[in-house]
Design a binder for these strands. Structure first.
Length: 569
DNA sequence: GCCGTTTTCGGCCCGACTGTTTTCAGTCG
């Protein structure tokens, strides 16, 4: 039995119990059991006593055992018979939870969006206890846009919205300080909404200005402590602003950065000490409320080191405190190994890119323009590649404390051959191989292409190994565990492409690579100087996989890097 | 439903907001 199926079944049971208006603690018990199973690294077969796992007891264990033995769950089947399928999507309507939907179904037989609409229009709903005219209005309004708005938006889109809002907040003089919070601050690939924490002594003035200055499609709520709006744009994004007093800023920032599981864990910890955490501060056993100047101080109050937002996820981060110092950070990065110039499809020259690297405090970098196959990107023929190398040598002569290496981002062709001959590659310092074509080939063919690249002695690294664009395209579906094994076997680097559209390899794969000690290079793939900034998001994303400095090629000294790139020459 | 214990019941993270109420339930993050 596949563990994923078990997890999904437990979650499904929770969802259906919710729609029966069950006891919320019972519902969350099923979710906790699913979560506990997910966080346990063992496979189902490896787990001897399932009830030994915290969060799994008699009831949930029975479901799991039945799944293993019979391949299905009778509890789930019974629930599916009792709860109409049509109710599940209705849970997404804001304001309608399990209890209300259960009531609407049992009293009025509502089990679809159509019936719900009809019941609102005939005013059947306001007759129910707990509902009123406003409920009907609100439901009708929500039904209009039902399914229209995207549920989660990718980080690369949200980033543009965050930057716009950031600039707007800078203009509001009544704001003392502010920060983005929520899953965006934790560098999640996709987020449902954006949260901002705003410290101010004049919340009504700030509220007024927010509503005036932002490009708002709809105001959801505008209270004294919370302003919630839909920002208009290519996609519509829900944004919450929490208005707090300056002294509450640190605890509010922590609270609204989450994750939910991290907060739960922190509160449990506080409770063990007789304290109580809320967004307003930490209540002491004697009832006084402490506030903090920074999140660092907040953590220090619980004898914890600063836990970066990126790893505040499952709550298990509190058990991995000893690893925090060794996590890769932007400060530990001293090189970028993948970038383009005007020689192919970049916006800046070799000299401009090189000097930009120097001003970032790096000690070395690699110029890696596209190869000849990629005609649309003005890929380089071997002749042009040699000419470019002269330009790189020249740069190095005039910049003695920095080294620019000559490299390429070479295409792996659809027929699985490489775009340059070995003789051409041999002349280069660093060879990246990557796939930019024929994404829809069967997996065997894709793997044949990747294998040919990775076993070639002159290839150092595979770039953006899956080719995905977050929230938009899956990529070419390679067998990544296999690729990681090859990388380990042939001593090659795999890339974490830091471009926010890509973030490729993803977290799960980075964890696998780390287990086999495969070196990872975090690269911006910059096509312009400004994109060198992607290194920030790349390192933060890497932290989410608990990637350690030593395994990240960009933290290696020039000498270490040279030893690596020359070993096959 | 799960857990822990001052062990077999009582609490489970905490608070804001909304719309319904007239003291609160449900939803949400």
């Amino acid at each position: 039995m596949n563990k994923k199926i078990v997890i999904k079944t437990l979650e499904k049971i929770a969802l259906l119990l919710e729609l029966q208006g069950e006891n919320p603690f019972k519902i969350s018990a099923f979710r906790k059991a699913a979560n506990a199973l997910e966080l346990d690294e063992r496979s189902l077969a490896e787990i001897e006593d399932i009830t030994a796992i915290k969060g799994i007891g008699k009831g949930t264990a029975a479901v799991i055992h039945e799944l293993i033995e019979k391949g299905e769950s009778s509890q789930l089947r019974e629930l599916e018979e009792a709860v109409p399928k049509g109710l599940i999507p209705l849970l997404k309507l804001p304001g309608l939870g399990g209890k209300k939907l259960a009531k609407l179904y049992s009293e009025l037989g509502i089990d679809s969006a159509e019936k719900l609409k009809e019941a609102c229009e005939t005013h059947a709903i306001q007759k129910l206890a707990g509902f009123g005219p406003k409920s009907e209005e609100k439901i009708l309004k929500e039904l209009e846009h039902f399914g229209e708005r995207k549920e989660r938006l990718p980080i690369w889109y949200l980033q543009t919205v965050v930057v716009d809002i950031h600039n707007t907040l800078l203009e509001i003089t009544e704001i003392q300080k502010f920060s983005v919070a929520g899953s965006f601050r934790r560098v999640s690939e996709m987020s449902k909404d954006i949260d901002f924490i705003v410290a101010t002594a004049q919340p009504d003035k700030v509220k007024e200005q927010l509503l005036e200055k932002l490009t708002i499609k709809e105001v959801i709520a505008a209270g004294d402590t919370k302003v919630s709006v839909i920002i208009d744009g290519e996609d519509q994004v829900s944004v919450d602003f929490r208005l707090v007093a300056e002294k509450e800023f640190a605890t509010a920032l922590h609270h609204f950065t989450g994750s939910k599981d991290h907060n739960v864990r922190m509160r449990q910890l506080a409770k063990e000490q007789g304290k109580k955490i809320s967004e307003y501060g930490v209540e002491q056993p004697d009832g006084t409320i402490l506030t903090f100047d920074s999140e660092e101080q907040f953590f220090a109050h619980f004898d914890l080191p600063f836990i970066p937002p990126t790893v505040r996820e499952s709550g298990k981060e509190l058990e991995r405190l000893n690893e925090l110092d060794d996590l890769v950070t932007l400060e530990s990065i001293i090189s970028d190994l993948h970038m383009h110039t005007t020689w192919s499809d970049g916006a800046h020259t070799v000299r401009e890119m090189g000097e930009a690297l120097i001003s970032r405090g790096y000690t070395h970098g690699v110029i890696t323009d596209h190869s000849q196959y990629l005609k649309v990107a003005n890929g380089l023929t071997p002749e042009r590649l040699r000419k470019q190398r002269l330009e790189i040598f020249e740069f190095n002569e005039t910049h003695p404390n920095f080294t620019l290496y000559a490299g390429t981002e070479m295409d792996i062709l659809p027929d699985a051959t490489l775009d340059y001959d070995d003789d051409v590659m041999k002349e280069l310092d660093f060879v990246i191989a990557s796939i930019h074509s024929s994404f829809s080939q069967p997996q065997e063919k894709i793997m044949e292409r990747l294998y040919n690249a990775i076993q070639n002695p002159y290839v150092h690294m595979i770039a953006h190994p899956t080719g995905r664009i977050i929230g938009q395209r899956e990529g070419y579906n390679p067998d990544i565990p296999q690729l990681i094994k090859w990388a380990s076997e042939y001593g090659k680097i795999l890339e974490l492409n830091a471009n926010p559209f890509r973030l490729d390899l993803c977290i799960e794969h980075l964890v696998m690579a780390m287990e086999l000690n495969v070196p990872i290079a975090i690269n911006t793939d910059a096509h312009a100087i400004e994109q060198l900034l992607f290194m920030g998001i790349g390192t933060k994303y890497a932290q989410k996989a608990w990637l350690l400095k030593d395994l990240v090629v960009n933290t290696w000294s020039k000498e270490q890097f040279e030893t690596f790139i020359r070993k096959n020459k």
